[in-house]
Design a protein around this nucleic acid. Sequence first.
DNA 1: CGAGTTCAATACGGCACCGTATGGAAAAAC
DNA 2: GTTTTTCCATACGGTGCCGTATTGAACTCG
Lengths: 197, 197
Amino acid sequence: MEKRRTSKSSSKPGAQPKTLGAEAWLSEAWRALSELGVEGVRVEPLAARLGVTKGSFYWHFEDRAALLGALLDDWEQRATAAVIRAVDERCESPRERLFALIRMTTGAPEAPDVEHAVRAWGALDPAVRKRLHRVDARREAYVQALLVAVGVDEARAAMRARALYLALIGEYTRVAHGGAPTDRATWDELVQRMIER
Amino acid sequence: MEKRRTSKSSSKPGAQPKTLGAEAWLSEAWRALSELGVEGVRVEPLAARLGVTKGSFYWHFEDRAALLGALLDDWEQRATAAVIRAVDERCESPRERLFALIRMTTGAPEAPDVEHAVRAWGALDPAVRKRLHRVDARREAYVQALLVAVGVDEARAAMRARALYLALIGEYTRVAHGGAPTDRATWDELVQRMIER
DNA sequence: CGAGTTCAATACGGCACCGTATGGAAAAAC
DNA sequence: GTTTTTCCATACGGTGCCGTATTGAACTCG
């Protein structure tokens, strides 16, 4: 038959499968994306690194575009919900949540590369732009809500949430270039300035 | 002889030359870079857009790498000195200069694309990273100096200069994706917060 | 054990691009 | 007016990548 891409193997989590699954391709693709950008996500080099040939790839994926699409889906899901949940679980007061949010997002070691790669990608592909907009809007709204909860009035909160988020994007970009991460004191200073009435 | 790349033609500024110069290639390369990223700067497509063939390109440039190098030189020269000079000429008080600086940098319509493209490029090429570091350091130092001149103490000025500059990078990234530019009020709010004692 | 299913190897045609080699036309220098 | 220089066209070989087609090995299940 010519039906492929069923892929529910993987024996059991914990036993490394001697046969590749789609996730293996995905994770290699993530590495390539963050290190080389979208243009670095190529089928044959990926295959070489995985120690297989293209034959495997085209069994798991329709084509290269399908892989890129899968990357986006993966990112959009994890980029927002996970962080917000973690912050909400860990802290109570909105003030603590703000500081925790900044610490988490600026502390994750591989986040900048991924984030920057996706953004660089977005400058090239309109489909990626849309997702970026959604994610950005969601994150910014969350920050704004925290600021309001702290006591900043709506209008100012919107402006400061934007400012904070812009700085965060800037930091991702900066670190993605190998720049030294901005230290906690600087972030605290900024957040503090944004919080005050 | 096999000596090429002498290129001092261009008749006179004002008369459009019927024959291409290196600058024509450079400006097309800029467009490609900002629209498509480094990987979009390819010799043959550029030639097609200029209505000539590769033969022309390899007369003016050693190879593709030389073109990319020329782009970097061009950028580093214009990216810092020009803006600082303009601001210093136009305003007197450091406070005014700060607001003017932000307005100029966030107001230039093609700056975000160029800036973001160079930064995306920097994530891939270590040689580009170095230039980025230099430029970033110079810009940040300028902002810090302005903050100190306004009356912020050194330590805080360093942190706030960083924060401001990060936000600016973020804005470039944002706008490069087709996001709406952040409005003046938001910038003024941020700058104001960074200025206050 | 034989048949189907799952995953990968091999081999192929095609495209886009790089860089080189060589020749030609038009302008500049003599 | 011939020679030289300047700039571009044409043609070529080479590479890296995409996607398809076909075959084959290993595992699964009857």
